[in-house]
Amino acid sequence: MAKRVLLIEDEPNIIEAISFILSRDGWTVHTHSDGETAADRVRSLPPDVIILDVMLPGRSGFDILRDIRSDPATQDLPVMMLTARGQTKDRELAEQLGANHFMTKPFSNAEVLTHIRALLAGAATPCDPAEPNLEP
């Protein structure tokens, strides 16, 4: 069965680009563009990997991540965060909240693919050195 990725992003063109490269790589891509309901969507799917944008309408990516990590059903899901703001404090906050990877826009397609695959593989081996449940 194809591996499922949930892309939480609100820019239509970026959704289209990421969807294209991931489906070409054999992923089933689900997309969601509203921040408010994103955590519910994660719970109801749940996907194998999540790509999560920071600036979303309704609720920020950081808050959504906090939700995902505080729900036992979703707390172990690998999450890759995307941001266009590119500030170090965003990166620090993402790590603190338990993001598995953090990428700054714009990115190279190859880079996205490499990290998504790595996250899937990492999720298969439960001994993750980073403690994901650290609440600030």
């Binding site: 063109n13 970026i14 680009a17 266009a84 590119g86 826009k105 714009p106 990115f107 190279s108």
Partner: peptide, 11 residues
């Protein structure tokens, strides 16, 4: 600036 740039680079 980065948002349109992302689409341009990716496509």
């Amino acid at each position: 600036l980065r948002t349109p740039m992302t689409s341009i680079r990716s496509f």
